[in-house]
Amino acid sequence: MNSKFQKNKCESLDQAREQIDALDQALIELIAIRQFYVDQAVRFKRSEHEVQSPERVTHVIEKVRAKATELGCDPDMIEQIYRQMIQHFIQRELKEIRP
């Protein structure tokens, strides 16, 4: 796994919470970066179909479910999170391309 975060056994509840807080911070930073690139991508899209791109959504969902399974994470939970995030970004993009 290419990450600065590693799974280490915690010796206390406070230690576990510290790690969770650090992960929450990193997740938010990564989502913000993803949003930046979604905002970049919309410049190259010309239609609502290109924004909604059901084929791309299917491809992304398949990839994240496979990665979740590989890492021992619940793929249904990951799919739900991604579908919500993707829907948010689609709505954000649609505001950009609609007059």
Results as ranks from 00 to 15, higher is better:
residue 37 Y to T: 06
residue 45 K to E: 02
residue 50 E to K: 01
residue 81 I to V: 13
residue 76 D to Y: 10
residue 54 P to Y: 03
residue 50 E to D: 08
residue 57 V to D: 13
residue 33 I to T: 14
residue 29 E to S: 12
residue 82 Y to S: 12
residue 41 A to D: 09
residue 52 Q to L: 10
residue 67 K to A: 13
residue 66 A to M: 01
residue 66 A to W: 03
residue 82 Y to W: 13
residue 56 R to K: 12
residue 40 Q to S: 10
residue 62 E to W: 04
residue 61 I to H: 06
residue 39 D to I: 05
residue 59 H to P: 06
residue 45 K to S: 03
residue 27 L to V: 14
residue 38 V to G: 07
residue 68 A to R: 07
residue 81 I to K: 05
residue 77 M to R: 15
residue 57 V to C: 10
residue 63 K to I: 00
residue 50 E to P: 02
residue 82 Y to E: 09
residue 63 K to T: 00
residue 31 I to R: 11
residue 66 A to T: 00
residue 52 Q to K: 13
residue 48 E to K: 03
residue 55 E to I: 01
residue 44 F to N: 06
residue 39 D to W: 08
residue 54 P to V: 04
residue 78 I to M: 10
residue 40 Q to L: 14
residue 56 R to L: 10
residue 73 C to P: 05
residue 41 A to R: 11
residue 75 P to T: 08
residue 40 Q to M: 10
residue 48 E to I: 01
residue 34 R to F: 13
residue 42 V to A: 02
residue 71 L to R: 13
residue 31 I to P: 03
residue 66 A to H: 03
residue 63 K to H: 07
residue 37 Y to C: 04
residue 50 E to V: 04
residue 40 Q to G: 07
residue 37 Y to E: 06
residue 82 Y to G: 05
residue 36 F to L: 13
residue 59 H to A: 04
residue 31 I to G: 07
residue 83 R to Y: 08
residue 47 S to L: 02
residue 44 F to K: 10
residue 30 L to Q: 10
residue 43 R to Y: 11
residue 65 R to A: 00
residue 28 I to N: 12
residue 65 R to V: 00
residue 36 F to R: 12
residue 45 K to Y: 06
residue 37 Y to A: 00
residue 32 A to Q: 14
residue 46 R to K: 08
residue 58 T to N: 13
residue 46 R to H: 09
residue 59 H to V: 00
residue 72 G to W: 12
residue 65 R to C: 00
residue 46 R to F: 06
residue 33 I to E: 14
residue 56 R to E: 04
residue 57 V to F: 03
residue 48 E to G: 01
residue 44 F to D: 09
residue 53 S to Y: 06
residue 49 H to Y: 02
residue 27 L to H: 09
residue 78 I to R: 06
residue 53 S to D: 15
residue 76 D to P: 04
residue 48 E to W: 01
residue 27 L to E: 11
residue 75 P to D: 08
residue 78 I to L: 09
residue 71 L to K: 14
residue 33 I to V: 14
residue 30 L to I: 07
residue 54 P to K: 03
residue 56 R to I: 02
residue 67 K to P: 06
residue 57 V to S: 05
residue 42 V to W: 04
residue 67 K to L: 14
residue 63 K to M: 04
residue 77 M to S: 13
residue 34 R to Q: 12
residue 41 A to Q: 12
residue 76 D to A: 15
residue 63 K to S: 01
residue 36 F to H: 12
residue 65 R to L: 00
residue 75 P to I: 05
residue 68 A to L: 06
residue 61 I to S: 01
residue 42 V to D: 04
residue 52 Q to S: 12
residue 76 D to Q: 13
residue 45 K to M: 11
residue 56 R to P: 05
residue 50 E to W: 02
residue 28 I to Q: 15
residue 42 V to I: 07
residue 47 S to Y: 02
residue 47 S to A: 01
residue 71 L to G: 05
residue 67 K to I: 14
residue 61 I to R: 03
residue 61 I to N: 03
residue 37 Y to N: 04
residue 35 Q to Y: 08
